[in-house]
Structure formats: structure tokens, C-alpha cells
Design a binder for these strands. Structure first.
Lengths: 268, 268
DNA sequence: CTTGACTCTCCAGTTGCGAGAGGCTTTACA
DNA sequence: TGTAAAGCCTCTCGCAACTGGAGAGTCAAG
């Protein structure tokens, strides 16, 4: 019989850990002195402890180890467990590698640009109802007019949700822009032509928030597009601009404006 | 001003999380109603939240994020943080990949052998004092004799610690074995020739515990050596056998015997 | 005025121990 | 044999970043 300290140094496992394993029922001492409460282990418990350590170091949680050991697992069952665990671990590795890649991409961007970068995040958006008006506008700057027109047509519906603009051109252009302006809604609504009410599809979006006058919004676009490229994605649909806090009436150079730019992306 | 639910769905962050960030001071609501306790956020807080999310998803702990954001970090400081984090993340990836490799190696072993495998673990051992006797013995089985001789020479010292056997041959052999037998000690001790007292060096050991009659110990050796090969290590010194619970006088076929076999290893 | 959606503040639980307080027990040495 | 030093015990808290639930108050719509 070994005292806990001896067993501990024999197996290179901390006393605290042994007590913990006792507590959770994973490895009960062979004997416990009922007077002193001292735990006594037998050397023949080492194989069980070894197995516990092996499984633990392979990433199994203690409760699964306990189940496995107490159910007297068959070789087949053990293989099953290990295969399952391998799948999990593969996912884990993948996730960690991706995190590393994002980190590296960001560092590269910063070194190349030599300055701060807007904070781009990836998010999954659900489907989104909007009521909107789509038009070709001659100049990008003239989107304000389309806004006026749309909100006039929307009437009270215009106050329901955030304003949104979509740009359908595959690439950025200054002139002859295929633009769409509307509001985000919770549900479908009846609207009269030329307004349309429909659902934007769910998508994976790269998103950046611009805070400040809209005439500096190009920087945000720049950051976003560079980020998309650096992280191995590419745009896969119309860009969305969601106006979260806009001084009314809309003024392009109000510093309190806030807009979120979203570009749907897919992996390269 | 946005209620927490609105802000939450805007940013795709759970209400819980927002409250948590408030609690830890990472993102305080722009306004809190003193009567109802309701939190109100401003759209202009989105950039800060975005930055928090970016850093969090890169693996920074919240307290470091809080420090960074509250200290108004310079671009250089930010780069430093990211570089540091990248190093950490590289280590993380390495560790996860190694875990996956161990898992795969074990599965391969099991599939090849078609049966259970002894549980091999890797451990770091410190230096270890021993008092021992080294001799060439004609047959492996005759190690019992060397045991008797050694313990007779050791006298009372023989009861101090666990018995240990070392095998100095680079490869396993049945005959003309270069063996050494002794006891583990806590400190140096004076011994008379032909006994020697010295320290075994610290090393990384692949270890397996054998429980049962010693005439089946070859299985344990087999598992251990296959494991070492499958995991990309190779033996780098004399094998140690540590006798943890041996029926006295030593009998090779007592089922209650317990011995740990350790092979020092290095990476291939 | 009611109903239901939202929000609040605790409190507990998750994982696998590590650290420390305060109090026995055992061991070693003089 | 006495005493000091290890060694062991059982608490309880802490970690990281939340999630879930209880019980209660608040707000907007019909």
C-alpha cells in the first residue's frame, strides 16, 4: 500500500489530481483509513491510472473516461471511441490552424499598409425582409436622391427599420451604379410598385463598421476588400450598406453617422 | 439608443455576452436607466464591439483586450500584441497536431495488432539515485540470481526503495545480457564494491505498466516498442524495469506482480 | 387592462485542476 | 520519549467566458 504522496511521485501525477480523481470516482484509492482519512493506493492501480492519463492526454474529458473504464469496454468500443475522438480532434486542429491563418493575414495586412485597419469580422446573417427600390443611378454620390425617392414612396414604413443600400454591380464603379435602397423589416409587407418587398438570402458576410462622415467610407471599403482577399475569400453577391445611425435629414458629412458594410463571401 | 436585444441582434452577439462584457468593464452601455436598470447602447459603440470580437476570435483573452482598448494602443503596440499572440497560437497548433498524431498512431497500432494495447505514456523523470550491481548474465531468465546476489550485498539498504533492473544492451537479447540490478534510493549511500551507487540521469521516458506474472512481460515490451516506433521516437539509453509490487521472495509467475518498464526516448 | 415580449439581478454550473487555510497524523531525529 | 517537520486531511475559492434558469420588474400593443 502506498500513501498518496508515494503514488503521486511514482506516477508523476499531482496529489491534487489524485484527490480529484477520487472525488469524481475515476480512481478510488484501494483503501481509505477510516480514522485518519488517509488514502492508500496499490501498485496494481497503476495500470488504470496509466490508462486514464493516456485517454486524458488524447483529449478525452474525464467523464467519458470514467464511463469507458467502468463499462469494461470491448476493443471494438474502444476503437469507436478513438475514431470519434479523432474526428473531433481533426476539427479542433482545423479551427486552430484557421485562427493562426487569420492572425497571420492580419499581421501581413498591417505590415503592408503600415497603419491601422478597420475591424473586419465574419458573421452569418439570416434571411432579411426588405422593402426597396432599385435603380441605375448615374453617379455614386447621387444615392441621396434615390434615398429621398424611396422613403417618400415607403411612407410610414420608412420608420420601421434601418435603412439599407445594396450595390449589385459585381465590381465597384463610380458611374451607372446599379443601386437599391430600402428599409429592413421584420416581416413581409404590402408595397406598391415600383417598390418591391422580398427577402434577402441568408449568407456569410464579411462586415465592417464605419463610424463618421460618409465621405470617408471608402477607407472602410478598402479595408474590407483587402481583408477578404488576404483571408482567402471572395465576394459572392451584392454589397450591403446598413445605416445604423444617421443624422436626419441625411447629411454625408456628419461625424456621428454609423453604417455597417457587409459583403457576402465564399471561400476561394 | 438601442435596447440590449436590438444591439444583440445587430451585432450577432448574445445578450448574455453583452451583459458579461458590461460586467467585466469591456463594453459599458452608453446609458443605463437608473430606474429600470435597462441597458441602452449606441450604434457608435459597434466599432468597439467589433474590435473586441476580432481580438477575441484571434484568441486574445478578454482581460488583455480590455487593457489594449483602454490604453489606446498605438499601431506599433498592436503589432506587438499580434506577434506575441501569433507565437502562442503557433505553439497551440503544434500541440493540437501532436495530439492528433498520437491519436492516429494509436488507432493504427490497434488496427494492425487487432487487439488491445498496453497504455504507454510519456513522462519526464528526474535524476534517480540507485545502488546496484552490474553483470553479464548468460540467460535473460537468470536475472533472479543477480537479484539474490545484489540484495544479499545490499543488506538492509535493499528494503529502502523499489527494486530496479537496467538492461544496457542496445537491442534486446536473450543471452549474454548486460544487466544491472539494484534499488532506488532517495540520496547517495555508501556501498562496498562490487556495488555502485550513482545517479541515473533525468530523461524523457516512454513507460508502460505490466501487471501480472513476469513470464508475460514480453507483451508489455512489445507494446512499448511498437508505440515508440509508431509515435516517431527511438530508444536512447538503457531500459529500466522498476518493480513496484513483487511477491517476496521473487516469483516469476505471481499474478499480483507489478512492474513499470521505462525506455528513454528521443524524437526521430 | 391585460398579455406577452423584453429586461433585470442573482445564482448555479461548466472543465480540471491549483492554491491556500486550518487542523490532524505520522515520521524522523535528538 | 519528546518534539519538530513532513505529510495528509477537508474545506473553499479561483480560473475563462460564458450558458441556463428562477423570480421579478418593465414596456408596447391590442
Amino acid at each position: 500500500m502506498l500513501k498518496i504522496g508515494e503514488f503521486s511521485s511514482l506516477a508523476q501525477v499531482s496529489i491534487r489530481t489524485l484527490r480529484h480523481y477520487d472525488e469524481v470516482g475515476l480512481l478510488r484509492p484501494a483503501h481509505v483509513d477510516s480514522e485518519s482519512g488517509y488514502r492508500f493506493y496499490s501498485a496494481s492501480q497503476l495500470p488504470r491510472l496509466h490508462r486514464i492519463l493516456v485517454l486524458r492526454d488524447l483529449g478525452f474529458p474525464l467523464n467519458r473516461i470514467a464511463e469507458a473504464l467502468d463499462e469494461g469496454l470491448s476493443p471494438d468500443a474502444l476503437r469507436g471511441m478513438l475514431r470519434l475522438r479523432r474526428v473531433e480532434q481533426e476539427e479542433q486542429v482545423e479551427a486552430e490552424v484557421e485562427k493562426l491563418n487569420r492572425l497571420t493575414a492580419l499581421l501581413n495586412l498591417i505590415e503592408k499598409e503600415g497603419q491601422m485597419i478597420h475591424d473586419v469580422i465574419l458573421k452569418e446573417t439570416g434571411p432579411q425582409w426588405i422593402a426597396s427600390l432599385r435603380e441605375k443611378i448615374p453617379m455614386h454620390r447621387e444615392i441621396g436622391k434615390l434615398f429621398g425617392k424611396t422613403f417618400a414612396a415607403l411612407g410610414p414604413l420608412g420608420g420601421e427599420g434601418n435603412g439599407i443600400a445594396l450595390f449589385h454591380d459585381a465590381e465597384y464603379r463610380e458611374q451607372e451604379v446599379d443601386a437599391e435602397v430600402g428599409v429592413c423589416l421584420r416581416n413581409a409587407a404590402d408595397v406598391a410598385a415600383p417598390l418591391k418587398c422580398y427577402q434577402l438570402p441568408a449568407a456569410t458576410m464579411a462586415s465592417v463598421v464605419h463610424h463618421g462622415a460618409f465621405n470617408r467610407i471608402a477607407e472602410a471599403y478598402g479595408s474590407l476588400l483587402r481583408w477578404i482577399e488576404a483571408n482567402g475569400y471572395r465576394p459572392s453577391g451584392p454589397t450591403r450598406e446598413i445605416f445604423l445611425h444617421v443624422s436626419a435629414p441625411v447629411s454625408r458629412d456628419d461625424e456621428s453617422n454609423v453604417a455597417e458594410i457587409q459583403v457576402p463571401v465564399v471561400r476561394n
